[in-house]
Nucleic acid binder design. Structure first.
Length: 599
RNA sequence: GGUCUGGUAGCUCAGUUGGAUAGAGCAACAGCCUUCUAAGCUGUGGGUCAUUGGUUCGAAUCCAAUCCGGAUCACCA
């Protein structure tokens, strides 16, 4: 149990004993004490003054006395200022916390709960390479899966590949027109970029044709429909749906190029999946659900044969679930896929990492499944994340203002190399070690940057300012870890083993403020892991791990570990250092970032 | 237009779900390496928390209105 929970429980018991009042659970607010006051944690009394009919001063005094009397090992003193009861925690608590956990490698990880959660993320289109927005999605998805795992859940990571549809056909048509049988191998281009280039070519040609038609006096709207390249694309989509062998062959071939390219990028960024679904295999799903919905009257058929659901009573609109020609729309297959996932994995919770542009769609999906009474409906959660924008505005693939994933990764790694060479701390590394280090640092800078902000909010990515290795960044946190490891290594080399005795706290020593601060930060980690899980928010971890690193660095520059004043102090600081290192390592792992031993 | 969502330091973001004098990083300025990694530490300056009103012991946080952004409302995905 965390110290905050302990204090809350103690306060509840004390209030019950003093005033025979048991309605206090939700009224007890515990905060960290502001630095300008004496104390570690503070009970805010205002909410209790009314039901207990006590003035803040009297209540504070009575509650403080009672807490001290009930828990002499937990509290040593208190003071009351205005309506705030500031409690000083017994240093023995901090010391014994450190003794209990300093050897724990995954401190903060919760025991298995038996619950199963599915996390769907990434969901790329196979007509163009990944960009910065996809990276946010991938990093969020991987991290939230890891965070849910740390909270005791069994997690299944899944991905739905949008491998069919009009967008793919655009690349295919353009390749037929302009490709001359070229391949990624021959062109020396990564497969996903190769296919993406034809997607761009399509749009260029399409624009040209529309322009031409408009020049010849045709209205723009009509021209957009009638452009030959667009008509050819739509025809190709129909041929695909009919299983035309030539079209299928081309489709398979071009997708395989894209997958080869994606594989490289996914490997670089560390994305992986337990189950990959392909839209080409799921796009017909969901029709049986529609059928059932018609029977039960949840859905209704209009005169033209199209099928709808009326969600106006829930504040939404009427929503089409099946076209008049009987073919599926997006929501149809999503209904089907949700059902299939549940049949295959039986997860009671399902997280969809999907951009906030689809908030409405996700709301509708959940609502429809709830109306069907699907057992997994209430467990659907949309981890909605905001778009990544540039200082110049939104990224538009049409206008060529997207930040390509591979490019930005390369750039990050190049900067990491430059910084590392400049500092010259790892001159004895061999080329493999160096390249590994550059990767770890560059990736960290990017991942941390994208994960440190609230997922729900849109964010601005400034390519020049974002490649920073100082301050609130991944490399800063990694640096703190490497620093600790260096100290531990040196002490180990000096004396053979890490000496952790004698035990600190025999009554002689006093915890210094910076020592206590780091320990209390460490103590909060499990609560942060829990919050990050329940709120589906990795930024909580990033912020925490940064503050921990900052707190440790302040302690580090002020107090020597190796040459501590007493053997007891040295043992204590070693434990602070090693637990900090392992919490940083585990916290960063939850973000998908690894931490080097040296840098 | 309907619905949803956002507006906090020059820039990028926190703000523990209503608590004490609103915090970080970057940028600017001033200090700190013969001692465990200076990718670090310490300090200074920088705010009408979009605006107005309301709710109460107390509001950046809750409510209402207004201003300014964004998303969405397709027989697209």
């Amino acid at each position: 149990m965390s110290i905050v929970d302990k204090i809350r429980t103690a306060a509840f018991d004390a209030i019950a004993a003093l005033y025979q009042y048991e309605g206090a659970t939700t009224n007890i607010l515990i905060n960290a004490t502001k630095p300008e006051f004496e104390g570690d944690y503070t009970v805010v009394l205002f909410a209790l003054t009314k039901p207990l009919r006590k003035s803040p001063d009297v209540l504070g005094k009575e509650l403080g006395d009672q807490l001290l009397q009930d828990h002499p090992t937990l509290f040593t003193s208190y003071n009351v200022i205005k309506g705030f009861l500031n409690l000083v925690i017994n240093q023995a608590y901090w010391v014994s916390f450190l003794e209990a956990h300093n050897a724990t490698t995954q401190f903060g990880k919760q025991p298995a709960t038996g619950s199963k959660v599915m996390v769907e993320y990434s969901s790329p289109n196979t007509n163009k390479p990944l960009h910065l927005g996809h990276l946010r999605n991938n990093f969020l998805g991987w991290s939230i899966a890891e965070i849910l795992h740390a909270n005791g859940n069994e997690v299944i990571k899944s991905c739905i590949v949008n491998d069919r549809g009009i967008h793919i056909c655009k690349s295919m048509i353009a390749w037929q027109m302009f490709g001359n049988g070229d391949t990624p191998e021959r062109a020396g281009t990564k497969g996903d970029h190769f296919v993406g280039d034809y997607y761009v070519k399509f749009n260029d040609e399409y624009k040209r044709q529309v322009e031409e038609l408009v020049q010849s006096g045709i209205a723009k709207e009509l021209a957009e429909k009638e452009a030959p390249i667009m008509k050819a694309t739509q025809e190709m989509l129909q041929q695909w749906e009919q299983g035309d062998p030539d079209v299928m062959e081309l489709w398979t071939r071009m997708n395989s190029w894209v997958y080869a390219g994606f594989d490289v990028t996914y490997k670089r960024i560390g994305s992986d999946f337990d189950k990959v679904y392909y839209e080409s295999q799921t796009y017909l799903l969901g029709k049986d659900i529609v059928e059932k919905g018609l029977e039960t009257g949840i859905l209704y058929k209009k005169n033209d044969g199209s099928v709808w659901i009326d969600l106006t009573a829930d504040g939404l609109d009427e929503k089409l679930v099946l076209r008049k020609d009987g073919t599926s729309v997006y929501i149809t297959q999503d209904l089907g896929l949700a059902q299939q996932k549940y049949e295959q994995f039986g997860a009671e919770e399902s997280i969809y990492v999907v951009g906030d542009e689809q908030n409405y769609h996700m709301k509708v999906l959940k609502l429809i499944l709830q109306k069907f009474g699907a057992p997994y409906a209430n467990g659907i959660h949309h981890l909605s994340y905001g778009m990544v924008e540039l200082p110049t505005g939104k990224m538009k693939s049409r206008e060529g203002t997207v930040v390509d994933a591979d490019d930005i990764l390369d750039e990050m790694i190049t900067v990491a190399r430059g910084k590392t060479e400049e500092l010259g701390k790892v001159k004895d590394f061999n080329p493999e070690e160096l390249s590994e280090l550059y990767n770890v640092l560059g990736l960290s800078a990017l991942k941390f940057f994208l994960l440190r902000v609230d997922p729900k909010k849109k964010m601005v990515f400034n390519p020049e300012e974002s490649i920073d290795f100082h301050g609130f960044t991944g490399p800063f946190v990694q640096y703190t870890h490497a620093r600790i490891k260096s100290v531990l290594r040196k002490i180990e080399e000096g004396q053979g083993t890490i000496q952790t005795n004698p035990v600190f706290g025999d009554g002689q020593d006093t915890l210094l403020p910076l020592e206590k601060q780091v320990i209390s930060q460490l103590e909060q980690f499990p609560v942060v892991v829990r919050e990050a899980g329940s709120e589906l928010d990795p930024s909580k971890i990033a912020i925490y791990v940064f503050n921990l690193a900052k707190g440790f660095n302040a302690f580090y520059t002020e107090h020597s570990i190796a040459n501590a004043e007493t053997p007891g102090k040295k043992a204590l600081r070693l434990k602070i250092a090693s637990l900090t290192a392992s919490v940083i390592a585990y916290g960063m792992h939850l973000l998908g970032i690894s931490v080097p031993e040296r840098m």
